[in-house]
Nucleic acid binder design. Structure first.
Length: 605
DNA sequence: TTAGGGTTAG
C-alpha cells in the first residue's frame, strides 16, 4: 500500500548540508515571498532584500524574481534591473517581469530590446511574455513590430490563447487596423469580458462607435459575462464619441446599479460624455461628487469648459487644481491652451506656455505648439505662427496636425506662400493628404487663382486622392439624423437653416469677423473687442456650422446649453426650433425612462 | 512569481 510521503523521511535520507539547505528553503522562502509581496515602501523592501542576502538566497531565481517585482511595484526599475543583471540563472519570469516593468514605466522600446536579448538565450517566451510584448507594440502603435510578434505567437503555439488574443485585438485597434482586430476576435473559440472590451474599444477608437454599441448589445443579450468597470468606461466613452446622450445615460444607470459610480475612472468618462453630449451641468454634478478628483477628471472639466467657449471657467478649474497641489499633465495643458485659443486670451496662453516647464515640470511638445500656432493664427498673427511651426520638431500625426493648423490659418489670411509650404509638408507626411489638397485648392480659389485651384482638383483625381465628405449627426430621443457636408437634402427645411446660418455670419462680419468657419480673422479690431468677439462667438459658430460640416457629433442640445449673447440668441433659438420641428419623435413608447437623470430602462443592458 | 481591456486632447 502506498504510504503518504513524510517530509521528515525525505530529509532523513539527505546529507546534513542538503538537509540544512532544504529546510532553510522551505522555512524562509515563503516568509520572504509574503513580505516582498506586501512591501509598501522602499525601506522595508531594502530590509527584506538584505535579509534575503544574509540567508544565502541571493542566487535563488524564485526569490530574486519576487525582489525584482517588489522593486518594480515601488517604481525602482533601476534596482530591479541591477538585480536582474546580477542573476546567475534567469528564467522566463525574470525576463518578462523586467520587460513589463519597462512597459509600465513608459519605455516599451527597452522591453523590446530585452526580448531581443532573451531570444539569444535558451529561455523560451510564454503567454505572459507575448502579452507584455504586444502591449509594448500597442503603446508604440507599431504595426510593423506588432505583426512580427504576432507571427512569432503563431509559430510558438499561442495563437489561440485568450490573453494573447485580447492583447492582439487591442494592438491592431491602436494601430488603426480594426479589420485585423475583428478577424482575431471572430476566430476566438473562448472569449471573456476583456476580449469583448478590447474589441469594443477598437471600434470606438477607429470612429466606428455604432459597431461598438452593437457589440455591447450583443454581449448583454448573450449574457456572457457581467460588465466590469473597464467595459463600462469604454461604453461611456463610445457614447461620448457618438454624442449619444441616450446610451450615455443608460450606461450611467448601469454604473450606479452595479455600484461602480464611486470609481474615478468612470466618473471621468461620464464628465467627458456629458460635456460632449451637451449636458455641461451634468458634467459638473458628476465632477463635484468625486471626493478627491485627480488630474484626469480635472482635465475632463477643463477641456469641457473650453469646448463651451468658457475660457475663464477653464482657467479657474486649472487654478483650483494647482491650489490643491494636483500636478497638471501634458493633456491638461492642451486643454488650457485651447481654452485660451478659443476664448481669445492670447497673452495668457503665451504666458502659460512659457511657464509649463519651469513652473509645472511639463515639457511643451508639438501638440502644445500646435495650440499656440492655432491661437496666433486665429487672431491674425500668422507670421509668428509660421515661424513657430518651422521651429517645432514634429513627426507623423503631430506634424500633419501642426501644418494643417497653419494651412487653415494661411487660407483665412490669403497667404498662398505659407499654404503651399504647409500643404507640401502635409503631403510629405502622407497623413491627412486629402484635407491638404482641398484646403490648398480653396486657398488658390480665395486668392482668385482659379487655374491652380482647378489644377489641384484634377491632380487629386489623377493621384486617386479622395476626400470623404464631412458629416455630423444629431440624436433626438431614440433617433439619429445624419448631415453630410454641403448636403441638407435629407432635411426639408435645410435651406431655411442655411439661410439663418448665413445671417449669423453676416452679423459677426459686421462686428469685425472675416473669413470662413474654420477659424477667426479680424481686421481693424482692438485687442479687447477681439477677445470679446472670440469668446462670444467662435465656439458657438463652430458648433452651429458643425451641424452642417464637421466630422464630430454636434447636437442640438449643445447649442441649447450654450450661453449666448443677446445678438445671437434669437438666431440660435430659431435654428433649434426648426430642427426640433423637423425631427418629431414618432414612437415615444420606445424611448427610455429616466429618473433623476438616470435611465431606469433595461432594454439596452 | 510574470500577462490582457478603461477614463482626459488635437
Amino acid at each position: 500500500m502506498k504510504q503518504p510521503l513524510n517530509p521528515n523521511s525525505v530529509f532523513s535520507s539527505c546529507s546534513f548540508s542538503r538537509h540544512h539547505k532544504l529546510s532553510r528553503f522551505h522555512f524562509h522562502e515563503p516568509r520572504f515571498v509574503e513580505k516582498l509581496q506586501n512591501c509598501k515602501d522602499l525601506a522595508s523592501a531594502t530590509s527584506t532584500h538584505s535579509n534575503v542576502v544574509k540567508s544565502g538566497l541571493s542566487d535563488d531565481t524564485f526569490t530574486t524574481n519576487h525582489l525584482i517585482n517588489c522593486y518594480l511595484r515601488l517604481f525602482r526599475i533601476d534596482r530591479a534591473h541591477k538585480l536582474f543583471d546580477e542573476m546567475p540563472h534567469r528564467n522566463v519570469v525574470s525576463w518578462t517581469s523586467l520587460m513589463a516593468g519597462y512597459v509600465n514605466q513608459g519605455q516599451p522600446n527597452i522591453a523590446l530590446c530585452l526580448f531581443h536579448q532573451m531570444h539569444g538565450t535558451l529561455v523560451l517566451p510564454n503567454e505572459f511574455t507575448f502579452a507584455t510584448l504586444i502591449n509594448a507594440c500597442s503603446i508604440l502603435a507599431s504595426l510593423e513590430i506588432g505583426r512580427k510578434i504576432h507571427a512569432l505567437v503563431q509559430v510558438s503555439g499561442f495563437g489561440s490563447n485568450l490573453v494573447v488574443c485580447s492583447s492582439l485585438i487591442d494592438m491592431y485597434g491602436k494601430c488603426n487596423h480594426v479589420d485585423e482586430a475583428q478577424l482575431i476576435f471572430d476566430s476566438m473559440c473562448v472569449s471573456n469580458v476583456v476580449s469583448w472590451t478590447s474589441m469594443i474599444t477598437a471600434y470606438s477608437q477607429n470612429a466606428q462607435g455604432h459597431r461598438a454599441l452593437q457589440l455591447i448589445k450583443e454581449f448583454n443579450h448573450l449574457r456572457l459575462d457581467r460588465p466590469n468597470h473597464f467595459m463600462l468606461c469604454s461604453t461611456v466613452s463610445v457614447s461620448a464619441s457618438l454624442g449619444s446622450l441616450g446610451s450615455g445615460k443608460i450606461t450611467h444607470g448601469v454604473v450606479v446599479r452595479l455600484g461602480y459610480d464611486g470609481r474615478e475612472e468612470i466618473a471621468s468618462a461620464l464628465v467627458d460624455m456629458y460635456a460632449k453630449c451637451g449636458c455641461a451641468s451634468y458634467s459638473d454634478k458628476v465632477f463635484r461628487r468625486i471626493p478627491n478628483p485627480s488630474v484626469i477628471p480635472y482635465t475632463s472639466m477643463i477641456v469641457g469648459a473650453a469646448k463651451y467657449g468658457l475660457g475663464t471657467l477653464s482657467l479657474q478649474l486649472f487654478e483650483e487644481m494647482i491650489d490643491k497641489r494636483i500636478k497638471p499633465n501634458d493633456i491638461t495643458f492642451v486643454g488650457v491652451l485651447n481654452a485660451c485659443s478659443h476664448s481669445g486670451m492670447i497673452e495668457k496662453g503665451l504666458q502659460l506656455l512659457n511657464s509649463m516647464n519651469g513652473k509645472y515640470g511639463v515639457m511643451p511638445n508639438a501638440k502644445h505648439y500646435t495650440c499656440i500656432a492655432d491661437m496666433l493664427g486665429r487672431v491674425g498673427r500668422i507670421e509668428e505662427a509660421y515661424q513657430l511651426a518651422k521651429s517645432v520638431k514634429a513627426e507623423g500625426d503631430d506634424c500633419a496636425i501642426l501644418w494643417s493648423t497653419l494651412l487653415s490659418a494661411s487660407r483665412l489670411h490669403g497667404r498662398v506662400d505659407i499654404a503651399l509650404e504647409a500643404s507640401s509638408r502635409i503631403i510629405e507626411s502622407n497623413l491627412q493628404v486629402a484635407n491638404a489638397y482641398v484646403t490648398l485648392s480653396n486657398t488658390y480659389a480665395l486668392a482668385g487663382d482659379w487655374e491652380n485651384a482647378h489644377k489641384l482638383r484634377s491632380k487629386m483625381k489623377h493621384v486617386g486622392v479622395h476626400k470623404e465628405p464631412g458629416c455630423s449627426w444629431i440624436e433626438i430621443k431614440a433617433s439619429t439624423y445624419v448631415f453630410n457636408a454641403g448636403d441638407v437634402s435629407n432635411c426639408t427645411q435645410g435651406r431655411e437653416i442655411l439661410s439663418l446660418l448665413r445671417q449669423l455670419e453676416d452679423r459677426m462680419k459686421e462686428r469685425g469677423y472675416v473669413g470662413g468657419t474654420a477659424g477667426l480673422v479680424f481686421v481693424d479690431v482692438e485687442e479687447e473687442a477681439r477677445e470679446e468677439i472670440v469668446s462670444l462667438h467662435s465656439e458657438k459658430l463652430a458648433l452651429v456650422f458643425g451641424l452642417i460640416n464637421t466630422p464630430k457629433g454636434v447636437t442640438i442640445r449643445i447649442m441649447k446649453n450654450l450661453r449666448m449673447c443677446r445678438d445671437c440668441h434669437q438666431t440660435f433659438k430659431l435654428i433649434s426650433d426648426i430642427v426640433e420641428r423637423e425631427f418629431i419623435v414618432r414612437d415615444v413608447n420606445r424611448f427610455h425612462h429616466f429618473k433623476n437623470g438616470l435611465c431606469t430602462c433595461r432594454d439596452f443592458w
